[in-house]
Design a protein around this nucleic acid. Sequence first.
RNA 1: GGCGCCAUAGCCAAGUGGUAAGGCAGAGCUCUGCAAAAGCUCGAUUCCCCAGUUCAAAUCUGGGUGGCGCCUCCA
Length: 459
Amino acid sequence: MRVYNTLSREKEEFQPLEDIVRIYSCGPTVYQYAHIGNMRTYVFMDLLRKVLQFNNYNLKHVMNITDVGHLVSDMDDGEDKLNKSARLQQKSPYEIAKFYTEVFMSDLQALHIQTPEIIVYATDHITEMIAFVEDLVNRGVAYETSDGIYFDSAKFEGYGKLSRLDLEEQQAGARVAVNTEKHNPADFALWKKAPPEHIMQWPSPWGQGFPGWHIECSTMAEKYLGDAFDIHTGGVDHIPVHHENEIAQSESRLGHQWVKYWMHGEFMMVNGGKMSKSLGNAYRLADLQERGFSPLHFRYFCLNAHYRNKLNFTWDAMAGAKTSYDRLHAAVFAHKNGTDEACHTEADLLRTQFAEAVNDDLNAPKALGFLWNMARLPAKSQYIYDLILACDSILSLGLEATPVVETVSLEADVEAMVEARRVARANKDWAASDRIRDELKAQGILIEDTAQGMKWRKA
RNA sequence: GGCGCCAUAGCCAAGUGGUAAGGCAGAGCUCUGCAAAAGCUCGAUUCCCCAGUUCAAAUCUGGGUGGCGCCUCCA
């Protein structure tokens, strides 16, 4: 299989360092609800897992839960996000973290995203982080200021190699130097000294404090995956700061290349623009469900675009994905227990093309096209059904489930109307029959007469 | 000011040198009392514009135009 490596900006043949594939994924900061843009990145992460497994690799995958240390500003002087959320909601940071972590894990499950083998919490690794920072200080690449311990970006010559940003050029911009104690603008906090009112704080060689945001990933990745591993994933927004800083910390300490492949998921747009809370378009999975879109409809929506391209979310596009998914599901189900003589050569070819597509840098949209071609094969055959389910072990769209006609529990009076229409139809009173159907439609209930009798579903 | 990405039918979206996947919406047909649902068929002579390279370009090069993102937190 081939994957696009942000470090080289090229697709590369995937070759693991050892038999077992080691992955680290930047997980959520659990101070608020995750929105669908966040979830898109985890669908991408899951697709990567599934394709690796399809290629018979065993995985050791670590995902962190950031429950401390992520400041509201990158100026290294803002408030910790957990701390702030806790203050606003008048709860303890641990309660906040626990609540949002549970919602997050539940969303993952709903989206058929496999839980990585190892889930780790930043607050469980404070001791290791302090040791990591001490080591950097001892190596002379970090220094102390009045408010914390900072990494000296000038001491790491590879700084900027992931984002390919020229620091000198960047400084010509509007960036405001707020911390005059920093040696270089790009220097970042490894450890912050905590003011007394700061809720989350731990003792350290530098007094009471809390860890910088970037140190947690470097520390936990090393603890669970060793001093080098295969793939590090995250959103594209993490390339310039977070991941650049992780590399600086870890490679300064390890003295060699830390991560072989960096993979990043692109952003989700809304109506052609950025998704943001202030615009009120940072939808959650729950918002979609309120509008009648299931998590799997959303997964299908995500898989219909390549993970490295921006995906434009609109309600129209979402509705299209829903219809498309439901029809695909029904078309696939038509093959179950099918006894037609299927052309195995044709079906096998599509299966091969499907595999080639996912192995080519996780090209799910292309693969989905082949899946549709399989589902639309005229001969209905169990053979094809099995092939499709094998493909779905990668896409995880839940196609093995029996499609259920979406029915609504009927109110007593609605039930009476349905019965009245049944009688009208039996009497061939088409006028009455159509009138009742229109009335029900006005109430949002669609009537369908099928060979199996009258069916109804929500509009 | 710097860096980068993108521009394919009404919409979403693959395709990165060999003559435009797939889906949604739409149109026609079949079927059903009429509808709906379902099935079948149709749909870009063309890939933002201009020039160039090539036997051959949506795909490569150069120049435009337009949109978006990053350089502040962000998946």
